[in-house]
Design a binder for these strands. Structure first.
Length: 939
RNA sequence: GCUCGAAUGGUGGAAUGGUAGACACGAGGGACUUAAAAUCCCUUGGCCUUUAUCGGCUGUACGGGUUCGAGUCCCGUUUCGAGCACCA
């Protein structure tokens, strides 16, 4: 009987649903395994063949683990909030919920065809109130927490208030936006608003006046990872720096834990490195500089404390609050002009045009070690957001300071013996110090490393500085001026942001008619009429009732995309719980994601936020583990393989690839679906677009050959391949096998539909092993032959090892080899073929179920035990050794498999041919490599 | 600029320091067939030799090194990709 994949696949899709094959419940009798894919954003374009790659890989692993006796959680859901749905709403007036719902249905339909073992009862959608309830809940918890540096964990804000009441800021070691100092009396004297403002300095979710990435094109602020080279990742609109009041998350408080945690997880080195770069830990020294003829002193941060004797000027960031304090009357006009000019420049302009600019403040600082007066400058090469926003400039040993000094004619004082600073600075942290001594500290003759240590010690003891660790990691801006996101569960009591009572969660996103930002510059939620909070009835009411006594306005911002995706892995453990994010029993059972699959583009976004969020929940006692994703695999992108036709300029004539150089041609993208093996279907091409109806062709060998290139898979390149089309033609099992066969999982590779025939042939060949021409099962019972056993056990070994190593492409090859061998042997042995079915089940579940049923297997093949291999069957009777002389193979010899190296050596040396090669030469060495080669070194 | 990673036939890609190119596509040839599809078999890195077999040389971006033996390890160069980028 022919292999009828359509009938087989639809039959099993129905049966799987009917039997609830993929339903998972917590089962203490089995070890758990949690497999997770980064959930998709359901875009309107639907899935292309690149999307399911990771899902297929994880599905194979999940099914494999299940067959090995694990209780496997393999859920799927949708990251449903996002900008495209909202922009579509602005254009069409359709509610984002409607389009999102439609897109999800389409995704689901496509996913269902591929035969995943997802437990759809556990589906989550970030835009559903039952889900974002817990996003809002976590935000409130963060609002009501601060980060204690001493115990390295989040603490309830009440504890901090108690500390303020008793001690003020004395003996305080907590994460904060800026170091404040006040006494208990001062704290107690503050009014409610002042207290609220003060606490914002410490809360983990806080409102802060910070420099943000403002994107006028999108009408919203963006997080650092949403901006690349001064333009927005989405849309490519210019982004400028602006000081705005925004909700922020104090991710920076967790910088050290985020860094340390990397050592305990099984992620690729490259992605760990990316995160380490992003966190950017830098160990250095903070030093106090007094301002000459003034009481003011300020702090700088440096990693090169050793260069303190080479400081010839100081630089402040233009945004620094010290600027107005240090600017002298004489310099004021010039400084104001400079600061204004800097403000006008966008981030993009600053990056594109790195000229040296700056202005003298008029003030001088005193070098705390030498007492020297040093001029204080202002320049935009110093960033306000890093360190203290002020630096000591050592032009001899820092290239940026050097460029500045050269430009403004400032002194350059070398400190390292033998360095030449006439052309460029000497930045390397090596060499012997010179010119570095005062009456108490003498660095001359020490190495740079020794000097850094000595200076640190000296300034700490003298009280003019301290050792400090800085991080590049900034707090995450957490509010967006958009509609389609989680509303903040916050109302404003006379300007004081106040959390909604917990029982009022979830605060549902209101319906509005107009999704555009309001004219007053308010977010779209400004259009909502029912958007005020009545503290008496604890209900959301109409804005017209706002009296600022009992009814107050609600927050208009919404949360960013990463809010909903930061803890979704916990929700899958217990998705219907309306009492908690996750029950402690479910959490205690599933613990963490054992295997997480997704693209590496989330390295500095989702994967940082999610780790941060989990650490916070751990501090709260909700999550039971420090790291949420024990093992991470970043699947590569599937790229498109575009095809081109070549139009001769100013004609409607197209010339085949091999002949195109004879003409002046323009390459034009052509739909890959009307090209096969790079040969154009000329008739389909004519029908493709009206302007090609009259097209003429210059062929070679009667064919039109297209050119090709690997590009991103996208509509505009006409290289998008839809999985539905592949499944219609070859079936889901073939698609699954082929996606794995394409190449290593973590590597990016182009999709080329041409190769799929090989996988389809393999599946048919396997089918034919089980059935005769009449479609009857032709299995035989009894002993399997030695060759059959050898073939199948080789496969068991290979596939088991490959799956454990996520090397799915080589297992597909192994299947092909084995099925070819078994076909050659005309194998019909039930035991051997039963092993084969169980091995193929994770890869091609539909045909495996069908064949499992055919051979009389019990239950679903999903639960059929994974076969074990027996080393004895793999043993050979004899092994062929290559005999080499000085590394060059000359001939081969066969030896019994159990023969020891000494005997082999003796026999090889005694051999006639060997004698011929070594005649007249001395044998220096004989190397016998077990089961491989005998190398005889002669000379 | 700094930090990672990669480079193997016409193509996708295999190779615990041990016969490079498994497996698949494509291509060429053949069998079956009225024909086509499907299926099966043979050849397929390059060069040389041979009627053919047998055989020889060369070959994993480039130049060195370690080793009996290197695609694999070490040093340098080139190219491509990724991350960070006035982070003091």
């Amino acid at each position: 009987m022919e292999y009828d994949f359509r009938q087989i696949e639809s039959k099993w899709h129905e049966l799987w649903v009917k039997r609830g094959t993929y339903k998972v419940t917590e089962d203490a009798s089995k070890p758990k395994y949690y497999v997770l894919n980064m959930f998709p954003y359901p875009s309107g374009a639907g899935l292309h063949v690149g999307h399911p790659l990771g899902y297929i890989a994880s599905d194979i692993y999940a099914r494999y683990k299940r067959q090995r006796g694990f209780n496997v959680l393999n859920p799927m859901g949708y990251d449903a909030y996002g900008l495209p749905a909202e922009q579509y709403a602005i254009q069409t007036g359709q509610h984002p919920a409607v389009t999102t719902e439609k897109n999800i249905a389409r995704y689901r339909e496509q996913l269902d065809k591929i035969g995943f073992s997802f437990d759809w009862d556990r589906e989550v959608r970030t835009c559903e109130p039952g889900y974002y309830h817990w996003t809002q809940w976590a935000f409130q918890k963060m609002f009501n927490s601060y980060y204690c540096n001493k115990c390295q964990c989040a603490q309830p804000i009440e504890k901090l208030i108690e500390h303020f009441e008793k001690q003020g800021t004395a003996a305080l070691d907590v994460a904060c936006s800026e170091e404040l100092t006040f006494s208990p009396a001062e704290w107690n004297a503050m009014d409610e608003k002042q207290k609220s403002d003060t606490l914002m300095n410490y809360r983990i979710a806080y409102q802060g006046e910070t420099m943000v990435n403002w994107c006028a094109g999108l009408g919203t602020v963006l997080a650092n990872d949403e901006v690349v080279e001064g333009v927005s990742v989405r849309g490519g609109f210019p982004v400028e720096q602006k000081k705005m009041r925004q909700w922020c998350l104090r991710v920076s408080a967790y910088a050290q834990r985020l860094l340390d945690g990397l050592d305990s997880i099984d992620w690729s080195d490259s992605i760990k490195e990316t995160q380490r770069n992003w966190i950017g830990r830098s160990e250095g020294t903070e030093m106090q500089f007094k301002v000459k003829d003034s009481d003011i002193q300020f702090t700088i941060f440096t990693t090169r404390a050793d260069t303190i004797f080479g400081v010839t000027f100081m630089v402040l960031a233009p945004e620094s609050e010290l600027v107005p304090q240090l600017t002298t009357a004489a310099q004021k006009a010039e400084v104001d002009a400079y600061v204004a000019a800097v403000k006008k420049r966008t981030e993009r302009e600053r990056i594109a045009d790195r000229r040296v600019t700056g202005v003298f403040s008029g003030s001088y600082a005193i070098n705390p070690l030498t007492g020297e007066s040093i001029p204080v400058w202002i320049s935009d090469y110093v960033l306000a957001g890093y360190g203290t926003g002020a630096i000591m400039a050592v032009p001899a040993h820092d290239s940026r300071d050097y460029a500045f000094a050269k430009h403004f004619g400032l002194e350059i004082r070398p400190l390292i013996e033998g360095c030449d600073v006439s052309e460029e600075s000497f930045d390397a942290k090596e060499g012997i110090m010179m010119n570095s001594a005062n009456s108490e500290l003498n660095l001359n003759g020490l190495t740079v490393k020794e000097s850094i240590a000595a200076t640190k010690k000296y300034v700490t003891e003298k009280g003019i500085g301290r050792v400090k660790v800085n991080y590049r990691l900034r707090d995450a801006i957490f509010s967006r001026q958009r509609y389609w996101g989680e509303p903040f569960p916050v109302y404003y009591r006379n300007g004081i942001p106040t959390m909604l009572p917990e029982e009022c969660l979830p605060l549902q996103l209101p319906e509005i008619k107009d999704y555009k930002p309001t004219e007053s510059g308010e977010p779209p939620l400004g259009h909502a009429t029912e958007w005020a909070f009545d503290t008496k009835t604890k209900k959301v009411v109409s804005k017209s009732l706002i009296d600022n006594v009992t009814v107050f306005p609600l927050e208009l911002n919404t949360m960013p995309g990463f809010a909903g995706s930061s803890a979704y892995y916990l929700r899958y453990m217990d998705p219907h719980n309306d009492k908690a994010l996750v029950s402690s029993s479910a959490d205690a059972y599933w613990k963490c994601v054992d295997l997480y699959l997704g693209g590496s583009e989330h390295a500095t976004g989702h994967l940082i936020y999610s780790r941060f969020w989990n650490k916070f929940l751990k501090d709260l006692g909700v999550s039971v583990v420090e790291e949420p994703f024990a093992k991470l695999i970043n699947q590569g992108m599937i790229q498109g393989r575009s095809n081109f036709v070549y139009r001769i300029k100013d004609t409607n004539t197209f010339v085949s690839l091999g002949l195109k150089d004879k003409y002046d041609t323009t390459p034009i993208h052509v739909d890959v679906n009307i090209v096969s093996n790079d040969i154009l279907d000329v008739e389909s091409f004519k029908a493709w677009r009206p302007e090609y109806e009259t097209a003429e062709f210059i062929l070679e060998d009667g064919k039109y050959i297209c050119g090709w290139a690997v590009e991103k898979m996208s509509k505009s390149m006409f290289n998008v391949v839809n999985p539905d089309v592949i499944i219609e033609k070859y079936g889901a099992d073939t698609l699954r096998m082929y996606e794995m066969f394409l190449g290593p999982l973590e590597q990016s590779k182009p999709w080329d539909t041409n190769g799929i025939d090989g996988c389809h042939r393999f599946i048919r060949k396997m089918w034919n092993l089980f059935t005769d021409r009449d479609g009857k099962s032709c299995l035989t019972d009894g002993e399997a032959s030695k060759d059959e056993l050898k073939s199948i056990h080789k496969l068991i070994k290979k596939v088991t090892e490959d799956i454990e190593n996520f090397s799915f492409n080589t297992s597909v090859s192994a299947f092909m080899i084995c099925v070819n061998e078994l076909s050659g042997l005309k194998c019909s042995n039930r035991a051997v073929l039963s092993d084969l079915v169980r091995l193929i089940a994770p890869f091609a579940p539909h045909i495996a179920e069908e064949l499992w049923e055919m051979i009389g297997g019990e239950g679903s093949v999903c639960d059929a035990a994974w076969p074990k291999y027996n080393e004895d069957y793999l043993k050979e009777d004899s092994i062929t050794y290559s005999i080499s002389f000085n590394g060059k193979t000359r001939f081969t010899m066969d030896f019994a498999a159990d023969m020891d190296a000494k005997t082999i050596e003796a026999q090889v040396l005694a051999n006639e041919k060997t004698q011929g090669y070594i005649e007249g030469k001395t044998i220096r060495k004989v190397i016998v490599v077990p089961r491989k080669i005998v190398n005889i070194v002669i000379g």
